[in-house]
Design a protein around this nucleic acid. Structure first.
Lengths: 332, 332
DNA sequence: TTCAAAAGCTAGCACGCGCTAGCGATGTAG
DNA sequence: CTACATCGCTAGCGCGTGCTAGCTTTTGAA
């Protein structure tokens, strides 16, 4: 093995030299540069030679030359990660890859990173499931990120009325009302990180109970990992609550467990419905009714949003009708 | 706003020009280049001006110039994501950041990506929790990745005897044996993706039952999401099995649910222990005994391994004694 | 046959940075 | 005072790519 071939990566110049043509031509062929005419013969020779030599473009050099990295960063909240998130990301990633972009996911930690990932990766866009903090937005701007989703200049509370927030709670309430429940409780975990989204969901629950003429919901926050749920359940029964809308399946499980330990029959005396279709919900005894969102659809949605924002191309906006489906099981 | 300042990122040249010094000096100061003497006065002026202008080095240009990206890619398997993975990654990320590296996580999908992430990011190293497939390794080599962990040239089966695999099952068996169980079953989900690691854990269980003089374990794979677990549980009772070692907490939950539905008392007639300390395990009725691994320790471990591999510096190898702890609850 | 237009290609700059070679000024030893 | 080392700094190349300006050759219509 000569020094020439040792450990040096194959560049476009190598391909050009090997064919006795200019490097520019190689670039035109491999990028399908518009406005350039290349003979079919040359085109084929370049493609074949690049393949033969195992040429891979150096992404750092590409990013430097064209000023765009073709990387999109998706920041995930520091919540207990929901099971479905993987599918969500996978679908978004698939769509973006088709468009030539790479999706990188990233969990926001409370500890402030010396060098946040958007600075290290120089992505074309940063996306989040919820609006970013002002500090994060400032940091992104300083790093030269121009595309931020959700756009910080928009109304920061707009996400609270998005279909992915609203559809589930609405279905939960309608389901319980349809079963004849008149007095409903709302249960949420006592986790500060979730406060904003819990409030958003609860307000949907409240609006829907009002609309359906039910009593005002009895809202309680519970600690999932001690025994404090049991007094909450007793209180609900004293208050003649017969149905519980839980923020998520884990909360529903905690409520169901407390009820069982209190000798309260589920769903006989207390019906419970969760949210997210966590695989554990089916394993629970009694199995937990829940809401399943169209996760893949949401993934596609966010990918489209990103592409749209980056190069203002008109991407056919997919029907935002995210179908939230009721999964009925033993707990209601 | 002039055309000059509009949307153009601040470069080291801007800082230099603004101070009337050369770009090289700016580079030397900001990189603390060894072997270069810079007067303290100049040094401070450069640092202050860079701060004032909001200079951020262009990572793509850095990567191109020095041939290293200071990015490390951690590939996660396409399994149902374990709850603890987040903490694992967070700790590894923290350690690597201190060393000036950025950790990017990545979920391997079965669908073969047109352009795998290691090609798009050009990382200095790619790490995985399990060995990579030959196809993936070849793809990495072609993309110029020289550091791959676990090293493909090593014995690919070595991971099966690593402490993070062995410690849990050993503790599970010892716990049940300590409670007087003589005939033990091993339950695992019927998921092809998990086959290798399940086999590895099972062989640890088998070895330990042998060592302790117990009967050979009754190994069954179950589908967690239909009712097929119930006949398996009945069979175990007929075979005089009194304790079940589950691959993970979800499997333990499925077994416990099946037992409850069959009218079998847990742990009276059948004791069950899971693995991973999933938060749901505590919510279950009966609450599930389980194994908790030192996730942060594992995260630190993998970060150190990466740093070690990249620049053969002698990193003080942390004590690999990953403490697997028994969490005892109602199910045993 | 002539000559403009188009096809097919190349030379070379720009992107922002790391870093080597080397320059003048200053200090120090003989 | 001279020789020489050190300090403090600068000019400028190279990293691999995208892409513009422009060159030569071919085409095709008048």
């Amino acid at each position: 093995m000569t020094a020439e071939t040792k450990n040096r990566r194959v560049t476009a110049a190598d391909v050009a030299k090997s064919l006795g043509i200019s490097r520019a031509t190689v670039g035109f062929v491999l990028n399908n540069t518009r406005g350039q005419t290349i003979s079919e013969a040359t085109r084929q020779r370049v493609i074949a030679e690049a393949e033969r030599l195992g040429y891979r473009p150096h992404t750092a050099a590409q990013a430097l030359a064209r000023g765009r990295s073709r990387i999109i960063l998706l920041a995930l909240p520091n919540w207990p990660i929901e099971h479905s998130l993987g599918r969500h990301v996978a679908e978004a990633s698939r769509v973006l890859e088709e468009a030539g972009y790479s999706l990188v996911t990233y969990t926001l930690h409370e500890r402030e990173a010396v060098r946040p990932l958007w600075e290290a990766l120089d992505p074309d866009a940063v996306m989040g499931l919820l609006p970013f903090s002002e500090r994060d937005v400032a940091s992104m701007r300083a790093s030269g990120i121009s595309t931020i989703i959700p756009d910080p200049s928009y109304e920061p509370m707009a996400w609270q009325t998005g279909p992915s927030i609203v559809a589930g709670p609405e279905l939960q309430v309608k389901h319980l009302a349809g079963l004849g429940h008149r007095r409903i409780a709302f249960a949420a975990p006592d986790d500060a990180r979730l406060a904003a989204i819990i409030e958003a969901r609860f307000s949907v629950v409240r609006d829907n109970t009002t609309k359906l003429g039910l009593d005002a919901p009895d809202y309680r926050r519970i600690n999932l990992h001690d025994s404090s749920t049991r007094p909450a359940v007793r209180q609900w029964l004293e208050n003649r609550v017969t149905g519980v809308v839980a923020y998520n399946d884990e909360t529903a499980a905690a409520v169901a467990a407390a009820a069982v330990r209190e000798g309260i029959s589920v769903p006989g005396e207390l019906a419970i419905i969760g949210h997210d279709d966590n695989p554990w919900a089916e394993l629970f005894v009694p199995s937990l009714s829940t809401i399943r969102l169209d996760i893949e659809g949401l993934g596609r949605q966010i990918a489209m949003t990103a592409l749209n924002a980056i190069h203002g191309e008109v991407v056919p906006a997919e029907d935002p009708a995210l179908i939230a489906a009721l999964i009925r099981r033993e707990s209601t």
